[in-house]
Simulated assay, not measured.
Amino acid sequence: MGTLDGKTCIVTGGAGSLGLAAARLFLAEGANVALVDLAPQALAQAAADLPAERVELIEADVSNAGDAARYAKRTVQRFGPVDVLFSNAGNFGTVSSIKDYPEDVFDAVQAVHVKGAFLAAKFVVPVMRDGGSIVITSSVAGVRGDAGVYAYITAKHAQVGLMRCLAKELAPRGIRVNTIHPGPIDNGFQLAVEQGLGAAIGADGTEFFNRIIPLGRHGRPEEVAKSVLYLASDQSSFVTGTTLMVDGGMSV
């Protein structure tokens, strides 16, 4: 018997490595999963080997209110009320001095991370069962600061504030709300981050991160997904309003 038997889960950023790893775990634990992503082709490829009878693929822009309302409605129509929302969609932006940081890039990053998580809660909470769980993907960047990473770090801090507000409001319904804070993950998203950082600092971005992670390596999507499953399931039944670090000690 799985820890999520018969439960309905929404995963935004579902075509990415962490979203897909979490979806696989949710399915293995008995859940039905709506995978939401902006890129339909990538989403279809990512889900090619998943059980179609328990997966709904939804193309959506998480920063658009109409799209958020639509993915919430489609999920309920297919599987019933929502038990787990994994708000995981993200983009990075760029690394630049404050005087040169592009305003449009800053706005685009806030739109996906902050407004996207806000809209997910706004439209999913009304169709969520009492006792459910919301997990928002923040980052180790959500508890620290680094010069030049203005859009991403600001957005990741903002998600923590959103989480704490939701945790207070939804506690009477038994809905738990937490953020998960991965460190660098071995995936394409992180590689793009490190390439940008490397260009800015004139050094290998991947090696730079490995040197400042006490465990000395990047995490794997599957490792982080196990912590997402913990927060999504009743294993964390008395955990809400928390920032769970899954960063190899980078925040220490």
Rank of each mutant, 00 (worst) to 15 (best):
S227D: 11
V82L: 11
A44G: 05
I212D: 00
V76Q: 09
V76Y: 11
T137L: 12
D67E: 06
G174M: 10
D49Y: 05
R217V: 05
G90N: 04
R74K: 14
P51T: 07
A39G: 00
K115C: 02
H218V: 00
A52V: 12
D247R: 04
K99C: 00
N91T: 15
H113T: 03
Y150R: 00
Y152H: 11
R164I: 02
G93Y: 05
A28L: 14
G248H: 08
G90Y: 07
L191S: 07
V11R: 09
V125F: 09
G198I: 14
R144Q: 14
N187L: 03
I134Y: 03
F189C: 04
P221E: 08
L244C: 06
A199C: 03
P221F: 07
A120H: 02
P182D: 04
N64Q: 13
T154D: 04
Y152D: 07
E29P: 00
Y152V: 06
D100Y: 03
L20N: 06
G2C: 05
Q41H: 13
A117K: 05
A31V: 05
I180P: 00
T179L: 12
G132Y: 10
A200C: 02
A31N: 06
A21C: 10
M250H: 02
G14H: 09
T179I: 06
P214L: 12
Q235M: 15
A46T: 08
A151S: 15
E223D: 09
N91P: 00
V239M: 14
G6P: 01
G174R: 09
R217H: 13
R74F: 01
V105L: 12
A39P: 00
G142N: 10
H181E: 10
A21S: 15
A23R: 01
E59A: 15
R74A: 15
S97D: 08
I180C: 09
L4G: 03
Q195C: 00
F118V: 02
P51L: 11
G249V: 08
Y152Q: 04
T75M: 13
P221M: 13
R211E: 14
E223S: 09
A232Q: 11
L191P: 00
D130W: 05
L35D: 02
V112A: 02
D67H: 15
G131I: 06
L38P: 00
L85I: 06
A22C: 14
R24N: 10
V125R: 05
I134G: 03
D247Q: 08
L119K: 07
V55Q: 12
A34D: 07
E29A: 14
A28Q: 15
R74N: 06
A108D: 12
A23S: 14
L20P: 00
R144E: 10
F106Q: 01
L25N: 02
I58R: 08
T75A: 12
L244K: 06
V177D: 10
G90W: 13
A151K: 07
R78Y: 01
P126W: 13
A203C: 01
K226M: 10
V36G: 04
F123P: 00
T242Q: 15
V124Y: 01
M163G: 02
V11C: 08
V114G: 01
H113M: 01
K7D: 03
L38K: 13
I58D: 04
